[in-house]
Amino acid sequence: MKLELTVNGKPCHWDIEPGALLLDVLREHGYTSVKRGCGEGVCGACTVLVDGKRQNSCLLLAGQMQGRTITTVEGLGTIDHPHPIQKAFVAAGAVQCGFCTPGMVLATKALLDETPEPTDEEIRRALDGNLCRCTGYVKILDAVHISVDALKTGGQHPDQAGRHKAHQAIEEAMDQATKAGDTP
């Protein structure tokens, strides 16, 4: 079947199998930053933005994308012109193997578009669908805090302002949660 959509600003007319998953279709068309980590909807390595909202492309049929606008991490910035969030991930040391990174960056983008100054709790919830086995998330949370500051100052990277904010916030949240008897 025919599918019309926009990917990273480019109008696309693709011929697809009706049952095809968006993840596979994107990769076949060269958008290889979209990764398969599980194919089960859990890891978020396949995250893309659909009309600005984060989605797991392994849980979407490509046919659902008719007329939609998709952003992959290639569309966010390039090595020469990286997006402030991409720079923040680099600065924070949040990229180890980098397999989860495109998804993390896009999940961060979706969060900050919706909530420019999220609480630490909001950040952790927004990223709970993006698994990373390398970093222990500490520096990823730092990266989001740095992104917030960078976007506030119009893409400037002041310094690693986000560092340690995350630790503190988690501690407080944990303190509260466990006091309230509200462990998951």
Partner: peptide, 15 residues
């Protein structure tokens, strides 16, 4: 900074 991290963060084909 880790030398490959910007490439990975911008999704260059590497894997």
């Amino acid at each position: 900074e880790k030398i490959d991290s910007l490439g990975l963060a911008t999704g260059v084909p590497a894997f």
